[in-house]
Amino acid sequence: MTLFMTRFILGIEIPLCFTYTLGRKTGVFFEGVMKMKTLFSTMIVTALLAASLLSEGCATKSMNTVQNAQTEGIPMMVMDQRILTDPSLSRSVYIVGVNEAYTEDGYRKVQVQLYNRTRRMKAFTYRVEWYDKDGMLIGSPLDHRTPTQIEGGQRKSIPILATSPKAVDFRFTFMESLAK
């Protein structure tokens, strides 16, 4: 019962470990083994968690979008290869695709299209590495990780222009923000 109420109040964003603990305790409760004291402490923990998640700082705000129905620009999509090691991040910072273009002088420009499939804002950092025709990394004094955010339900495009004419291949890396 407690578990059901918690899910109903908080939506689908319940941390997995808490669900497990709560479920185990609820099961014990229905078996008649849980004492009154344990029940109260579970309720207090549930209330505190609900209050913290529903507070202003964590309020879920999703973004609505409108655009022209028949887009004139035709993006040239790139076949990509993905290595996902953080499932939580790939839910919030879902990579829709990568398209490319070239400047008049032949500099390569790539654009990563992202979509936040959750209702929660996600802060993350990204970096792009450029490689030459021999597969060697092109180092630069401009190398850095860029911190950014994506709101719930937002579609975001990150365009990057290669600052070296030698750049032929690219690699984007995304990482959840370390700032607490």
Binding site: T103, D105, S140, P141, L142, T146, I160, T163
Partner: peptide, 20 residues
């Protein structure tokens, strides 16, 4: 500084150098 310089260089290349 690195981020600002990177974004400025991208802009200079795209709008100025690449167009001749």
């Amino acid at each position: 500084f690195a981020r600002a310089a990177d974004e400025m260089v991208q802009s200079i290349i795209e709008d100025c150098i690449s167009t001749g």
